[in-house]
């Protein structure tokens, strides 16, 4: 019964379609302001304010044109379209934004939409994910906790993410070298994925850079669910000259694995935000992690030389 119904409707539709004269396919126009791939329509106002949309008939002279010139026109059109496509490609290369991706009617194309969903999902995963234990084991760092109990609390209570747990404070005091020149702290922050992907390259490269410059490093450790200002408390406990905090950035739709390096000269409780400085956008689509590590070494050198960071450093430098 159902099949029969479907068949009869299909037949009706096919009949109706074959009766109607098919309008010629509209020309592809990359810059058209109107909806694409739809036959142009003409507005026909009828009595009582009723509006009827009716397909426009293709222009007469086009049909009348001889075949040879029509095909010539067509090849010129494709050449023109190719040229425009090339120009759009140039523009696309200049930004990671989703520009000139086309559309289907007034919706994005399926591929674009899927890519968007994928990137969004990756961002969510980055926040809720964890750094694989092997990564931290390879670097030889130990792990401590903040006052945060779980991810939900981490997001709701930023202040807890800025404080070490009692146990963590004890562990740091016991295991870390006191008053080092540079203290490196790693934290997942808002993107575990950022740490997992980039930390090895950034860390090893920074370590090499500091070695070359004869700047000694303290005992590096990992803080689970930390916030940037946690460095103030660490500064109080270990009294390093400089803290470098490598922390996962809030993920976006361009990259979910971007890492930041926050630095501060002698951080302590009550330090003002203007004294912190940051090198952000460390990931394979931004500044390459290995190059970032090499650059960070020279920034640390500058901080030590001027005994200042952030805005104070800028003032002292000029």
């Amino acid at each position: 019964m159902k099949e029969e119904l479907v068949a009869s409707i299909t037949k009706l539709v096919v009949e109706k379609l074959s009766q109607e004269q098919q309008p010629q396919e509209p020309e592809v126009n990359l810059w058209s302001k109107g909806p694409k791939d739809l036959p142009p329509v003409e507005l026909k106002e009828q009595s009582a304010g009723q509006i009827e949309w009716k397909p426009l008939q293709p222009k007469q002279h086009r049909q009348a044109a001889p075949l040879s010139s029509a095909s010539k026109q067509k090849s010129a059109d494709t050449a023109e379209a190719e040229k425009k496509e090339k120009q759009l490609e140039e523009l696309r290369k200049k930004t990671p934004s989703r520009i000139a991706v086309g559309r289907a009617g007034n919706r994005p194309k399926t591929n674009t939409w899927l890519q968007f969903r994928f990137d969004h999902a990756a961002a969510v995963d980055a926040v809720y994910g964890e750094v694989a234990p092997e990564v931290l084991k390879n670097l030889g760092v130990f792990t401590v906790q903040t006052r945060v109990k779980d991810k939900e609390e981490y997001i709701r209570r930023p202040d807890y993410g800025r404080q070490l747990s009692d146990e963590a404070r004890k562990m740091i005091k016991e295991r870390c070298q006191s008053s080092p020149t540079v203290q490196i702290v790693i934290s997942n922050g808002l993107s575990a994925k950022a740490v997992e992907t980039n930390i090895e390259d950034v860390y090893l490269s920074l370590q090499q850079s500091l070695n070359n410059l004869n700047i000694s490093m303290g005992t590096t450790f990992y803080v689970d669910k930390g916030r940037v200002a946690l460095m103030d408390e660490i500064g109080e406990i270990l009294t390093p000259d400089v803290v470098v905090m490598l922390i996962g950035e809030r993920p976006g739709l361009v990259s979910a694995e971007s890492l930041s390096a926050y630095m501060c000269y002698k951080p302590r409780k009550g330090v003002i935000e203007a004294d912190r400085m940051v090198v952000s956008n460390i990931h394979k689509g931004g500044i390459p992690p290995v190059e970032a590590g090499a650059y960070l070494g020279t920034v640390v050198q500058k901080i030590l030389k001027h005994q200042a960071s952030g805005v104070s450093l800028v003032k002292k430098e000029s």
Partner: peptide
């Protein structure tokens, strides 16, 4: 061509 000169240079230094 791409941004890797500093780390490569520092690696030579090391």
């Amino acid at each position: 061509q791409s941004d890797h000169a500093k780390v490569l240079g520092q690696t030579f230094q090391a």
